[in-house]
Amino acid sequence: MSALAKPAPHAAPDPLLVVAGLRKYFPIRGGVLNRVQRHVHAVEDVSFTVNRGEVVGLVGESGSGKTTVGRTILRLETPTAGSVSFAGTDLGFLGRPQMRAMRKRMQIVFQDPYASLNPREKIRTVLAHALSVHDIVPAREREGRVVQLLEQVGLSADYLDRFPHEFSGGQRQRIGIARALAVEPDFIVADEPVSALDVSIQGQVINLLQDLKDALGLTMLFIAHDLAVVEHISDRVIVMYLGRIMEVAPTRTLYAAPNHPYTQALLSAVPQPDPDRRPQRTILTGDIPSPISPPSGCVFRTRCPQAIADCASIVPELRPVSPGQFSACIRTAP
């Protein structure tokens, strides 16, 4: 099992979430008897912690397994192996009633704000439903709480009786955030919450999440495929590729001195307003391999510009390369 991705030195050593040796395989069935023939290796031996009050960015290309990690943490998917502990409780040992109570403390903001809202329900009903399911406030107080939630995300009570299609994408995502906040959670998985939005709106939503994190003391796993998106909201960043963690580092360290070749390639593609700060562009050739039959050894070796012969046989573990920074590369890690 890989070493746990330790928190940055400045972060309080108070883990709210501990993920250890997480694996998630999806069976592929076929044939006359519909038997399992192969598996999709979506997540492979992933371990990390998230401290209370911390925002951890989880970044990688499409198909890297980051969304599956988020869904498995919340038990929307059942892990194949490994464990997820939240506030000292191993979620794998919880039955359905206990897990339902735990979901009040763990919420998700989905990528597609329109698909995650019932198109037949007014926003008043959407938010009140979240309050009633978990019995957050008495029925007579729910109207006031719904208005408060809307105002908390920058919307007004004038929107209560509108349907989802009457809002812009950014407004719908604000409603999705308000729904997640309705149950007063300790932890939020933000699953690519700005990827479906215009660039001009992305910054507004990220700033909103940052303000809510500061005001409410939220702990967050912020999933994105773009390193530029997580830079200003994350305390630490985890970089994933084909189901495995490639690098973990405090945000400033990662952007100033990326260690893993994959991180370096991703950062080289991030636009820089200052031409003098722009690193030499690293072009990754080929497509990300299939998670049905991932490469042997280091899964990144088939696209890595620094790959050597040993990369085909050695599975690199996360090893420390600087304070708080861990890299899974046999060439760059000491």
Rank of each mutant, 00 (worst) to 15 (best):
M1Q: 08
P15V: 14
V18S: 11
Y25M: 06
F26H: 11
R29G: 06
V36N: 00
Q37A: 10
H41V: 02
V43S: 01
T49G: 03
T49D: 14
V50L: 12
V55T: 15
G60A: 10
G65Q: 03
G65H: 11
T68K: 01
V69M: 08
G70C: 10
T72D: 07
I73L: 06
L74C: 10
R75T: 11
P79F: 01
G82Y: 02
S83W: 00
D90F: 13
G92N: 05
R96Q: 11
R96W: 08
A101T: 11
M106K: 04
Q111S: 15
Y114M: 09
S116I: 11
I123N: 00
A128P: 03
A130K: 07
S132Q: 08
A139D: 12
E143L: 13
L150H: 01
D158N: 09
Y159Q: 07
F163C: 08
P164W: 07
E166Y: 07
F167K: 14
S168H: 12
Q171R: 12
I175S: 04
A178C: 09
A178E: 10
V183Q: 07
F187Q: 01
I188Y: 13
E192T: 13
A196G: 06
L197Q: 02
L209T: 09
D211I: 04
K213L: 05
A215H: 07
F222H: 07
D226W: 00
A228I: 11
V229L: 09
E231D: 10
Y241K: 02
G243Q: 00
R244K: 12
V248C: 02
A249W: 10
A249Q: 14
R252W: 05
A256L: 09
N259W: 06
T263G: 12
A265Y: 01
R277P: 05
P279F: 13
Q280D: 15
I283G: 11
P295H: 06
C298P: 05
P305W: 02
E317V: 04
P320S: 10
S322P: 04
P323I: 15
Q325W: 01
T332F: 05
